[in-house]
C-alpha cells in the first residue's frame, strides 16, 4: 500500500510542477495571475506538449515491450525509427508509392529489422553479460547511422507533405500532422493494451516478462515469443516513423533527437513498465513544451533532464517500477 502512495504522490508532485512551470514564469514576468491564466499561447504549448507526448509514449512502449520480454535494452531503437522514416521517404518521394501504401510498407520494413536484430544479434547474446548486450545494441546504433549515411547521404530530406493546421479557437492553431500523430499513437497504445490483455499471445508476452523459465514449462518456445516481441517492437518503431516523417526532416542522425528522450522516459517510468512509460512520456513532453514556451526549446530539455536526474535520486527504479 505504501508503494502505491508514493506513486500517487509522485504524480501529484509532477502535476504541481507542471502548474508551476506553466504559470509562475508568466506571473513573475507580468506580475499578474490573470494574464498568465488567460494566455492562449500557453495553452497552445500545452496542447503541443500533449501531442508530442503521444508519439514519445508510442516509442517508449516499443522499447519497454522488448525490454520487458527479452530483458535487453535496444540502444539502437531510435535508429530503427530513422530507417523507417527513410523507407517511407524513398518509397513515396522516389518511387512514387502513395503515402497510404508507403507507410504500412515502412512498418513492415521496421518489423523485419526488429526481427532481424533479434535473430542475428541479440539471440546470440542472451546469456552474455548485460554490458556486452548494451555494447552490441549500441554498436548497432552506429552501424545503422553509417549505413544510412552511405546509402542516403547526409542531406536533410523532407517528405514535402503538409497537412496544414486548423484553428481550435480563434487564436490556437493545431497542426493536423501532430494531431494525427497523437490520435494514431493513442489508438495504437490502446490496441497494444488490448492485445496484451485480451489475447493468448499477448498474455504469454506479459507472462514471459514475469518468469521466463516457467513459460517453457507451459509449452511456449521462448525464442518464438522473443521474436514476436522484437518484430512488434520494430513495427511500433515503424509506426512512430510514419508519424514523425510528416513533421520532421529525415537525416542519418535524426534518431539522436528523440532516442535519448525515449530512454529517459522508459527509465523514468520504470524500465519494462509500459504504464509507467506512458505516464512519463507525458510528464517529460509537457516539461519540454512549457520550458520551451517560456524560455527556449533548449531550456525545455534542460528542465526535462533536471527533473529526470532529480527523480533518479528520489526513485531510481522509476515512477511505476518495482524495487528489486
Amino acid at each position: 500500500m505504501g508503494r502505491i502512495d508514493t506513486r500517487v504522490w509522485l504524480i501529484v508532485i509532477a502535476a504541481g510542477l507542471f502548474v508551476c512551470l506553466a504559470y509562475v514564469p508568466a506571473i513573475i514576468r507580468e506580475g499578474n495571475l490573470g494574464f498568465a491564466v488567460s494566455d492562449v499561447f500557453l495553452y497552445e504549448a500545452m496542447i503541443n506538449g500533449l501531442l508530442l507526448g503521444g508519439v514519445l509514449a508510442l516509442l517508449s512502449l516499443g522499447l519497454n515491450l522488448i525490454f520487458g520480454v527479452v530483458d535487453v535494452v535496444w540502444i539502437c531503437y531510435a535508429e530503427i525509427v530513422m530507417l523507417g522514416m527513410y523507407g517511407i521517404y524513398y518509397l513515396h518521394s522516389f518511387y512514387g508509392v502513395p503515402l497510404l501504401l508507403a507507410m504500412p510498407a515502412g512498418i513492415l520494413i521496421t518489423a523485419i529489422i526488429g526481427y532481424a536484430v533479434h535473430e542475428l544479434v541479440i539471440r546470440h547474446l542472451l546469456d552474455s553479460a548485460p554490458i556486452n548486450q548494451l555494447l552490441a545494441t549500441g554498436g548497432l546504433l552506429f552501424f545503422f547511422q553509417s549505413v544510412a549515411t552511405l546509402a542516403f547521404g547526409i542531406d536533410f530530406r523532407n517528405l514535402g507533405v503538409s497537412l496544414g493546421s486548423f484553428p481550435l479557437t480563434e487564436d490556437i492553431y493545431i497542426s493536423w500532422s501532430r494531431l494525427a500523430a497523437f490520435v494514431t499513437a493513442a489508438a495504437c497504445v490502446a490496441g497494444l493494451y488490448l492485445f496484451l490483455t485480451r489475447t493468448f499471445m499477448g498474455t504469454a508476452i506479459r507472462a514471459i516478462s514475469q518468469d521466463r523459465e516457467i513459460m517453457t514449462l507451459m509449452g511456449a518456445a521462448q525464442g518464438r515469443l522473443y521474436l514476436i516481441s522484437s518484430a512488434i517492437g520494430g513495427g511500433l518503431a515503424g509506426l512512430a516513423a510514419c508519424l514523425l516523417v510528416l513533421q520532421y526532416d529525415v537525416h542519418p542522425f535524426v534518431g539522436l533527437s528523440f532516442g535519448p528522450i525515449t530512454f529517459m522516459i522508459c527509465v523514468l517510468g520504470g524500465l519494462g513498465n509500459m504504464v509507467g512509460g506512458f505516464i512519463a512520456a507525458f510528464i517529460l513532453s509537457e516539461l519540454i513544451a512549457l520550458g520551451g514556451y517560456h524560455f527556449d526549446l533548449e531550456w525545455g530539455y534542460v528542465f526535462a533532464f533536471a527533473f529526470f536526474i532529480a527523480m533518479m535520486f528520489v526513485r531510481p527504479e522509476g515512477i511505476m517500477g518495482r524495487r528489486s
Binding site: 493468448f200 498474455t203 504469454a204 506479459r206 507472462a207 514475469q210 518468469d211 516457467i214 513459460m215 507451459m218
Partner: peptide, 12 residues
C-alpha cells in the same frame, strides 16, 4: 506469474 490474474495464470 505474480502480476497476472488467477485466470490469466490458468490461461497460460
Amino acid at each position: 506469474f505474480p502480476r497476472m490474474s488467477v485466470e490469466d495464470n490458468l490461461r497460460m
